[in-house]
Simulated scan of single mutants.
Amino acid sequence: MTPDGFQNRQEAGRRLADHLLALGPWPDTTVLALPRGGVPVAFPVAQTLKAPLDVFLVRKLGLPGHEEVAMGALAPGGIRVLNEDLVRRLRVTPQAIAAVEAREQAELSRREAAYREGREAAAVRGRTVLLIDDGVATGATLRAGLKALQALSPSRVVVAVPVAPREVCRVLEAEADHVVCLTTPSDFMAVGQFYADFRQTTDAEVRGLLTRASAHKE
C-alpha cells in the first residue's frame, strides 16, 4: 500500500465521509453505491450525512479474453456505454459484445433482486445524488451510472470516490455536476493497489449494510 492508500473500504468511507461533511451541508441527498465494493465505502458516508443509502447497479462489460479491462458498462434502463475507440482498435465483434452484454444483464437483474430484498429503490428525483465507488480505474462503470441517473431527474449528481487517476477524474467532471476524489496518485495502476485489504465484498455483506441502513432510516 502506498502513502496515498487506505487500510480497507471502511476506513476509506470514513475519510470520504469526513471530507464530504466539511463540504456540506447536504440536504435532500441520496447516497447511491456501486456494488459490491462501493457499498462499504458508502455506508459510513450515508450514516455521517444522515442520508438514505441504496445500490445503483452498474455492470462492467469486460473485454473478451481480458475481462479485467472494461470495454464498456451496463446500467438499469437499458443504458449501455461502450469505449468505441477500444472496441474498434481491438476489432471486437458485435457478436462478442452481445454475448458479454447478455451475461452481465443477467447478473444485473440477479443482483437487483438479491440486494434490495423487496425494498423500493431510494428516491432520486429532485434530490442531490452522491454516487460512490471504492475507486475508479477507467471510469466506464461510473459513466454508465451517470448516464442512467440523468433519466431519473436528480437535481445534481456528485461522484465521490477515495482514489482515481487524475485524467479519469477530468473525464468524469465533464459528465457529473461535481467530482470529489480524496487522492489522485500519479502511479495509478489499479484500485486495489491503494488498499491494504482489498478482499472482495460479498453479496451477504452488501445485503447486511443495506438492511442496517434501512433500519437506521426508520
Rank of each mutant, 00 (worst) to 15 (best):
L61S: 08
G62N: 08
G62D: 08
G62H: 06
L63K: 10
P64Q: 09
G65C: 09
G65L: 09
G65V: 07
H66T: 12
E67I: 05
E67D: 11
E68Q: 04
E68L: 00
E68M: 02
A70S: 10
M71P: 13
M71V: 11
G72T: 09
A73M: 14
L74F: 12
L74H: 12
A75V: 10
P76T: 01
G77I: 05
G78D: 13
G78T: 13
R80K: 14
L82G: 09
E84Y: 00
D85T: 14
R89W: 03
V92D: 08
Q95C: 01
Q95N: 13
I97F: 04
A98D: 15
A99D: 08
A99S: 11
V100Y: 01
A102T: 15
E104A: 10
E104N: 07
Q105T: 15
A106Q: 12
E107A: 13
S109H: 12
S109E: 15
S109Q: 14
R110M: 13
R111E: 08
A113H: 12
A113P: 02
Y115W: 09
R116L: 14
E117A: 13
E117N: 07
A121N: 04
A122P: 05
A122T: 00
V124C: 04
V124W: 02
R125M: 07
R127M: 01
R127P: 04
T128W: 01
L130D: 06
I132V: 06
D133K: 02
V136Y: 06
A137V: 11
A137I: 10
G139W: 07
A140S: 12
L142N: 03
L142T: 08
R143A: 11
R143L: 14
L146W: 09
K147Q: 06
L152F: 00
L152I: 00
P154K: 00
S155Q: 14
R156P: 02
V157E: 02
V158D: 04
A160I: 02
V161A: 04
P162K: 02
V163W: 05
V163A: 08
V163F: 09
P165R: 11
V168Q: 13
V168T: 15
C169G: 15
R170L: 10
V171P: 00
V171H: 07
V171I: 15
L172M: 07
E173Y: 08
E173I: 04
E173A: 15
E173C: 06
E173T: 11
E175P: 00
D177N: 15
H178M: 05
H178E: 12
